[in-house]
Write a protein that binds this DNA or RNA. Sequence first.
DNA 1: TGGTTTGTTCGGATTGAGCCGAACAAACAG
DNA 2: CTGTTTGTTCGGCTCAATCCGAACAAACCA
Lengths: 167, 167
Amino acid sequence: MSDDDSAVARERVIESMEQSAEVYGLSRSAGRIYGVLYFASGTLSIPELVEETGYAKSTVSNVTRTLSRIGLIHRRSSAGGGRRVQFEAEREVWFILQDVFQQYIQREVQTTLRTIRRAEEQVPPDAREQEPIQNLRETYEDLEEIVQLASEYSAAELREALETYEQ
Amino acid sequence: MSDDDSAVARERVIESMEQSAEVYGLSRSAGRIYGVLYFASGTLSIPELVEETGYAKSTVSNVTRTLSRIGLIHRRSSAGGGRRVQFEAEREVWFILQDVFQQYIQREVQTTLRTIRRAEEQVPPDAREQEPIQNLRETYEDLEEIVQLASEYSAAELREALETYEQ
DNA sequence: TGGTTTGTTCGGATTGAGCCGAACAAACAG
DNA sequence: CTGTTTGTTCGGCTCAATCCGAACAAACCA
């Protein structure tokens, strides 16, 4: 039964997405809802997502909102037609990774860097605390630049940039 | 009071580390304990960490174990002397980021890739599920290579590799 | 040897996140 | 205008993580 095989394979991948979602600070339900949308041909409404995922309507409502906000799925407000809101997965996987990355890493790096800089200004130059703070700031400045540049490249470009860099 | 200023700045940075720890999947206590060790000159024992952080002895014991396992701090078992176990922070911040990165991203990428590959083998080539799975695999293969290469470079090298890559 | 310091392990309290069902609001269909 | 379908919001339940204190083991000291 290759139809069964396909269903099993699909389910495996979606389970894997549930796990990945947890690693990246999202909920399991977010992983499954995205997965169902990723494999769907076209768009799905909230009742359809309830049917496909088994989650409660309220859960689907909440999770789709956060997924839309981050950019993992898109809200297509169909003006006409019976059902109102339709959701579609962002299928460009690299975009998603960038979005998640941005959401969690870039923001963290920037707020941390701001705090460190303020702390460094406050510390007298001869204090014992000056050197470790400066050290911290310098690494985070590198990191900020790296994250910034990485977010502007495609996966293939990034890979090539690293592979061709020999010194 | 520049002494106070130093103390305040130090506290700010440690609080920032608590936050960062949470973002990277560690506990607040882990962030604080690392922070105290980062600013300490030399090593600290568990009782000293209890005194400095305000956490219970059991908490310090558990957290230092996990931090050692990941590589954020180092356990210096002083053979002689009154106190037994001494801890020292890994002060090379880039190493730490690599460790955390490796712990959370690299492992996730590899297990995901394994699952995707298995799923792709299982799916018949003409199935509707074939194309999205293949798409997923290709992006993750790029990602695996990127993460692998990135983990081998220093912050400065990585930054330079990205900055000099123009096409 | 007895007492103290150190470190780990256990059970339990507290907290927060995730999810559900019910209640509600709003749009649509008959 | 009344029913139904859709979507959001609210309160509550459950479970897991975090942290604490107590109990225990082991090393050190007098």
